[in-house]
């Protein structure tokens, strides 16, 4: 049971902790206050709890496809927040844009924690209600969360101790991959809800890197790795990354020279 608790907690915590550490680092680099992010983390935890508690009702909504649709919606929302965040960063010298950036950051953090947190909360509350599972699940989730948060801390200090330019680039690159993964997962949920036709998997790399393996799980959490992705998933993944990249570049081009407002 311990290993299972580790994997579930690690997978969810790692994703959330990396996203948060990138935002924390970028706000440090953009010289923004961190208190908003802490508040967003708390709101996200509450959101995860509420979502987890009502998952049964959500599941049966929309002909039993409620969970898929809500999850797809949440992933889409994270993607949109990332899009807004990355396109608004070049305009930080304008107050209006700074507020836009802040709202995008908060939305992304709240939604990410709500989504990842609901699963952990459901798992922990279920597993810990079984007496002889309490200890292994507790230790397992501490270990998983500990590893996830530690990696997040490393990533954070890596970003803020790099040269400003490189730190921003690495953070951007990571957010790009997260955005692609969000869209890929949203598409996967829509396929599962039978809204999109899956078609035959584009490739099968489960012999190379199995999704069951630790590396597979890590890659899934980091960049949305799939061993047998549907063609439309790959198309969505690549095009979403392209959209953000192009939008960010265009936004940079239209950047007005800094002046006081």
């Amino acid at each position: 049971m311990l290993l299972n608790a580790v994997i579930i907690t690690l997978r969810e915590v790692l994703e959330a902790s990396l996203i948060i550490s990138v935002f924390l680092a970028l706000s440090q680099l953009l010289e923004r206050k961190l208190s908003w992010l802490l508040l967003a983390m708390f709101v996200g935890a509450v959101g995860g709890f509420v979502y987890g508690q009502n998952l049964g009702a959500v599941s049966m909504a929309w002909d039993g496809m409620g969970q898929e649709l809500v999850n797809a919606g949440l992933h889409l929302l994270i993607f949109l927040s990332l899009l807004v965040f990355m396109t608004s960063v070049p305009h930080q010298h304008k107050k209006r844009w700074r507020i836009v950036t802040l709202i995008a950051t908060i939305t992304a953090v709240v939604v990410a924690i709500t989504r990842e947190g609901s699963e952990i909360i459901l798992y922990l509350s279920g597993a810990m209600s079984i007496p002889n599972m309490l200890l292994p699940v507790l230790i397992g989730s501490i270990v998983g969360a500990g590893i996830g948060i530690s990696v997040g801390i490393y990533f954070y200090y890596l970003l803020i101790n790099m040269r400003l330019k490189y730190g921003m680039w690495l953070g951007y690159l990571f957010l790009l991959l997260v955005a692609g993964s969000m869209i890929s997962q949203a598409v996967e949920f829509l396929i599962q809800a039978d809204f999109i036709h899956a078609g035959k998997p584009l490739w099968d790399s489960s012999n190379l890197i199995s999704e069951r393996s630790v590396i597979g799980q890590l890659l899934y959490a980091l960049v949305g790795y799939e061993a047998t992705p549907a063609p439309i998933q790959v198309v969505a993944y690549v095009s979403s990354i392209a959209i953000i990249a192009v939008a960010t570049v265009i936004s940079y081009q239209f950047r007005t020279p800094p002046h006081d407002d």
């Binding site: 998952l55 049964g56 599941s59 049966m60 039993g64 969970q67 898929e68 609901s118 699963e119 459901l122 798992y123 509350s125 279920g126 597993a127 209600s129 079984i130 996967e188 396929i191 599962q192 899956a198 998997p201 489960s206 199995s210 999704e211 069951r212 799939e226 061993a227 047998t228 992705p229 549907a230």
Partner: peptide, 21 residues
């Protein structure tokens, strides 16, 4: 207790809350 139906081969994951369908 809740359970998550998961299959890497089928590309499916769905959380099923306790006492629900």
């Amino acid at each position: 207790t809740a359970e998550e139906f998961e299959s890497y081969e089928l590309n499916r994951e769905k959380v099923i809350a306790g006492n629900s369908e």
